[in-house]
Design a binder for these strands. Sequence first.
DNA 1: GCCAACGTTGGC
DNA 2: GCCAACGTTGGC
Length: 150
Amino acid sequence: MNFWLFKSEPDAFSIDDLKQKKIEHWDGVRNYQARNYMRDEMKQGDLGFFYHSSCKQPGIVGIIKIKREAYADFTSWDPEGDYYDPKSSVDNPRWVMVDVQFVKKFKRVISLDELKQNRKLQYMQLLKKGNRLSIMPVHAEEWETILALL
DNA sequence: GCCAACGTTGGC
DNA sequence: GCCAACGTTGGC
């Protein structure tokens, strides 16, 4: 099983939104590296951290599970939508999404600062300078280390 | 709102 | 294929 980290701006889509919806498609990823992770490596049953970015308290807020593996991101076909990409077609979709299921919301936010303070997490992709990936893998040891913070 | 870092685009 | 210009991300 693989572990992942999903970033989202809580103003747009938060852990509470997912909790309410139970299952939701993770649309709008328009970065090739993030897409390739979803398309090539993400498997049903994989777990991921839900990370809130660009907000008052950036950090990890809960856990989600991959419910459906990668399929065409239909939001790329909607000319009226925010995620429209004219180079993506029904016959030849450029972008993919997965379905994720709410698993758990943590009682507290594991803040970005707390992650930075932890020596065991010093090589986490999330903490690399200038990191802008919205979906990234998390090593099993890092996953365990983070859960142990709770 | 600022700005560093990064990805993408497009002219050459 | 290079690289400058531009747009976006995301912490602060």
